[in-house]
Write a protein that binds this DNA or RNA. Sequence first.
DNA 1: CTTGTACTATATGTACTACAAATATACAAA
DNA 2: TTTGTATATTTGTAGTACATATAGTACAAG
Lengths: 231, 231
Amino acid sequence: MQDTIQSDLSKNLGRVKSNTMADSVEVKLRQYLKKMSFKPGDALPKETDLAEALGVSRNVVREALSRLRMLGMIETRKRKGMVLASPDILQAFERVLDPLIIDDTTLRDVFELRLVLEMGLADLLYKRMTDADIDELEDIANSEINKDKSFLVKNEIAFHGKLYEMTGNSTLKRFQIMLLPVFAYVITLVDKPTSGKIDHRGLVEILRNGTKEDFKKGMYDHLKPHFDRMK
Amino acid sequence: MQDTIQSDLSKNLGRVKSNTMADSVEVKLRQYLKKMSFKPGDALPKETDLAEALGVSRNVVREALSRLRMLGMIETRKRKGMVLASPDILQAFERVLDPLIIDDTTLRDVFELRLVLEMGLADLLYKRMTDADIDELEDIANSEINKDKSFLVKNEIAFHGKLYEMTGNSTLKRFQIMLLPVFAYVITLVDKPTSGKIDHRGLVEILRNGTKEDFKKGMYDHLKPHFDRMK
DNA sequence: CTTGTACTATATGTACTACAAATATACAAA
DNA sequence: TTTGTATATTTGTAGTACATATAGTACAAG
């Protein structure tokens, strides 16, 4: 009992964070960029000036800038200095969304997040999809007749990927691609992939002739094995 | 014409990315961490050793480590060295998801992403929500009778926030919090906030007595002004 | 057997200097 | 007007030095 209290301590209390200069400078710089309301492409002060203004070594400034650069917030060019850039919001995400390094709880959360997205696609889909889209989707669905398992897995990705693409929302599409490894990983953890009552061709049929509500129902049936396994 | 070709060039070709040492080292380190399959809490080599092994200066190593530290992948402690940590997948996201610095297209995409999430919540909700949850939600909804606009905005956030909370998915909940500024910003951009046919109390009523399908329909009606404004 | 104190070794944090590398800018040449 | 060339300037990298915090240890006290 004493042991459990002790082992829980580190988890419950966490560790005190000792902020480094680089941390502070990073925050300062971000505030500075916002306050000055720079537009993408605008030139930024050079490293030495920043270091002097902030009263820290160029080393510290570079560590902070290195972080912003990773996030795509700034770009640096020799001689020219730094310029502001429009950060790619998913770039940072990509680096940490690895099934092997995130904890189990988050992994499960992300898995569910994917299910939520999939269930919520319908409204966007029915607003934006074209007949050509459905044709293409049908081709994908039809191509999986009498194929081996590895092909099915690839096709599963292609099918759902096409669904996201049909929403016309490229951020959403990229998000889905990033979620794929998590999905694949969780699938292998629990059991062999099972498909629900409705398969891909069923979904296509609904998209072509059914209502938005039909599709939501169909998608739920398609994903039902995952929902059943939850909690 | 010559001008357009020239101006298009930079857009179509993009800029050549000159990878710095810090970039390479960051990738190397990430690969290293994965390959060695460290568990959170495991000790990592010290900076000087890494620098020597990689054949770069400690400066470069520190820039790379600074990035990983920002992402929460590692933690450093004096004297002890570095240890692996479970990265907070949303921490990085938080820093770039600022309406003021991301481009308009992405902003719209993220706005839609929020709508998709909201529409997809139903299945998780109906699986996990308790009567106590609905009671609390009802309190929030009822508290907005005869209140001024600023109160309504806060309550809007509280209500939808509670919905996310009821899914029992803390990552989802945090995600929603991060999306809030984007949502608020886009709202102010287009026009004054309008609520759909169904208000919060209507949604509560459905949760208490209606089916999952009723709720999906109700949520769509609630968000309909946003959907109508799309595209 | 727990708690308090002091000490020490050591890894990170910060500063500074020096130079390499790239390239925006200006200017000359065709 | 375009193309080549030189130069100045800024980032990128290396290396040294020292400050700072702290894990680990030992030992005393309760």
